[in-house]
Amino acid sequence: MKRLALITLLGFALPAFADRMPLPANTPASFKAECASCHLAYPPALLAAKDWQRTMAGLKDHFGTDATVDAKTAQEITAFLERNAGNSDRLGSAGEPPRITQTARFIRKHREVSAKTWSDPRVKSAANCEACHRGAANGSFSEREITLPSGLK
């Protein structure tokens, strides 16, 4: 019984480790097939449900590219993102169109990154998490797994 309570507690505490965000085991294959070729399959916890809904509703003009998927796939991906979305109060506004990189939380976590680093051609975009977070594809954003492109800080 005590053990069970401990496990339950741990389960609740887990999301607080903000540097571990692996994709849930029940992630639909369509999410990786449709949302991970142009950029990382972003962890769903990094945007609020309403922001994922706006993202999914606007795929036709998605940051200048056409990322549309068929209706059934769109439904599957939207439901998955909603189910695993983050808390909007904690993330802060994501702007329009919604960007993880515009949330107050992202900006706060990255305030030590210099302007020169953000504009380096090897980084290209703040949305290119993998340029600095080696383990991003596995959902690891821990400090131990950060390597900035050489010569940058």
């Binding site: 142009c38 950029h39 200048g64 590219t65």
Partner: peptide, 8 residues
Amino acid sequence: QHSVTGKS
């Protein structure tokens, strides 16, 4: 490398 996102 994707010319906008930087992804390989």
